[in-house]
Design a protein around this nucleic acid. Structure first.
Lengths: 328, 328
DNA sequence: GAGTTTGTTGCATACGTATGCAAATGAAAG
DNA sequence: CTTTCATTTGCATACGTATGCAACAAACTC
């Protein structure tokens, strides 16, 4: 029942060889305009579509980009997913979506990516063991860590400049006269959380300013609970620096629950500038990650590496900018 | 450089034929325990992985599920994406993520799905022309419209029972003494919006209760703007029924911006019960879509159809339940 | 017009796996 | 030990495409 039209069928109808049909659909092959036209007409008539599997089998390539993601729930990554899908589609690539519920990408998921011989991989919001990264290198599959880092420069990475951003935020809060500060970090294994903490603390330590640090998990609930814990202890800090926006929203809600006024009684700064940060209910001051720019960098690198693999890795850091709203 | 270990290599090392190797990896083929063990050992040693493309070429099947989605930004669909990915992975399927920015799934996207000969398709948050649906039928590819309907029963569909839910909500608001009502709908072409409107209006018409209807677009900004428009007109309604939660949050923020107290001055009811509906900042009364149940239904149907195709379509409606919070 | 170059075409083969068929093996029965 | 039957194995081929090679045609060059 499943009618399957092959290049041979098209060839017969067009009165050419199967090779010629193949060449019509193969970028850069040499075919005359005349046969090309005849082939396309015949193909149209029969409803021919080249078989992806036969093609990939012989070329040992695919038009699939693997996208590894954990926190789809975080609006930041939802937007990332949307943009990547959109752009890669424009370039003729399809998206193999790999959801990983562990921080570290699992063997099973890696196998999937290798099985489909993906043209490239974007890992956002997850990490992987060093050896797994090497596996991709061995197979000449370009890989980008988006908004994450792994190791120290062995793998390509596109990030916001978390260090300078968090330093800036520290300075900003100090300039606002905030003396006692609270820092709420995200998943402690992620490079983003580590760096945002580092930059922030560096400045405070240098100026001998007191601060308390609480470890959370980059989720709304985490932010909410952590803020509650903070409030259970004696004194209300002058300001909170929260390692991402979604947690910051949780923090705000927890503070409000306790009738603490923002920004009068305390201040809150987030990180990411997700859409919700600008909602009237929150009006969160935050650091904007330049998503478009980061995605463009990522796509350009991948496409170049797919064209001709070098394996050269680089850590690219894009600045982003501070967005002041009503929580400070 | 790209070392490619084939079944032949494994066969040689294990001292068996390539066929035997193939049979070890093929579900339900007959191999003795002895050779199976030897093959697996050899495979392990060489790092063998069956070639997906060769396999699909010959079997004319794939282990890919196409997931078509538009509104990734809506937390409801983010959760749907996460759950589907997770469950299908458990069943050995990978996800081809197809993002469509048009309401109607484009030809290009359909081609992608057909090219990869997906085992099944889930369409959420998008619609497709009738003829495209037929195309999938022709190719015996099972298809489910998730939270959407197309036509009148020609295609399988898993939804919340929008009609009875919105009727229930209308009754509820009336019982709360709300006399003048406002209905804010979503994308007017979507079955969900149409049905939620229908059920709601039916009840009101029957009881000759006045209401105004505003058309919006299922986004936060849409809800916000629409509410602003409503407020520009003379009188504040006693309650809003908003066709989904994310819009309802926009409505709430717009009302608050105008210093309107909820639920004292007016009430708001949403639909979906996304996580944010329970956030302290909103505490939105809403109708809970039984996501888990809907997903389970969808997956079961697809797996069954993949096993043995019948093409039988059914419209499955799951009830869900009312969740009363503080906006009513 | 013979020779040279450029561009196009078909033939034949290869990619790595699944599978029908026949051969071979092993177990069970007599 | 022979016969029967069930199970396992290898051989050979097919899936639909890309591509090296040789053949061919056309267009120039001298």
């Amino acid at each position: 029942m499943r009618e399957t039209v092959t290049a041979k069928d098209v060839a017969k109808l067009a009165g050419v060889s199967q090779s010629s049909v193949s060449r019509v659909y193969f970028e850069g092959a040499s075919v005359s305009e005349k046969t090309k036209k005849r082939v396309l007409e015949a193909a149209e008539e029969l409803g021919y579509r080249p078989n992806v599997y036969a093609r990939s089998l012989i070329t040992n390539q695919s038009n699939i980009i693997g996208l590894v993601m954990k926190g789809v729930q975080n609006p930041f990554y939802a937007q990332v997913l949307k943009r990547f899908s959109s752009i890669f589609k424009q370039h003729g690539y399809s998206i193999l979506f790999v959801y990983t519920n562990n921080d570290e990408i699992q063997k099973e998921d890696v196998e999937t990516l290798l099985n489909y011989n993906v043209a490239g991989v974007v890992v956002t919001d997850a990490t992987m063991s060093f050896s797994v990264g090497e596996e991709f290198k061995k197979n000449h599959i370009p890989l980008v860590f988006f908004n994450r880092k792994l190791g120290t420069g062995e793998f390509h990475s596109v990030c916001c400049n978390n260090l300078s951003a968090s330093r800036w935020i520290a300075q900003y809060l100090l300039s606002k006269g905030a003396s006692e500060l609270v820092l709420i970090t995200g998943d402690e294994h992620t490079s983003t959380s580590i760096e945002r903490e580092k930059g922030f603390c560096e400045v405070l330590d240098q100026q001998r300013i007191a601060y308390r640090k609480y470890n959370s998990d980059y989720t709304y609930e985490g932010g909410y609970q952590t803020a509650m814990t903070v409030l259970e202890e004696k004194q209300l800090p002058a300001a909170f620096f929260v390692a991402n926006d979604i947690m910051a929203l949780g923090v705000i809600d927890a503070l409000r629950k306790n009738d603490i006024r923002i920004p009068q009684d305390t201040k809150v700064v987030g990180f990411d500038n997700i859409e919700m940060a600008s909602w009237p209910a929150y009006e969160l001051t935050t650091w904007e990650q330049p998503i478009e720019e980061m995605i463009e960098e990522t796509v350009n690198y991948l496409l170049a590496e797919i064209m001709s693999y070098t394996g050269l890795a680089q850590i690219i850091e894009v600045d982003g900018k501070f967005v002041e709203r009503k929580t400070t």
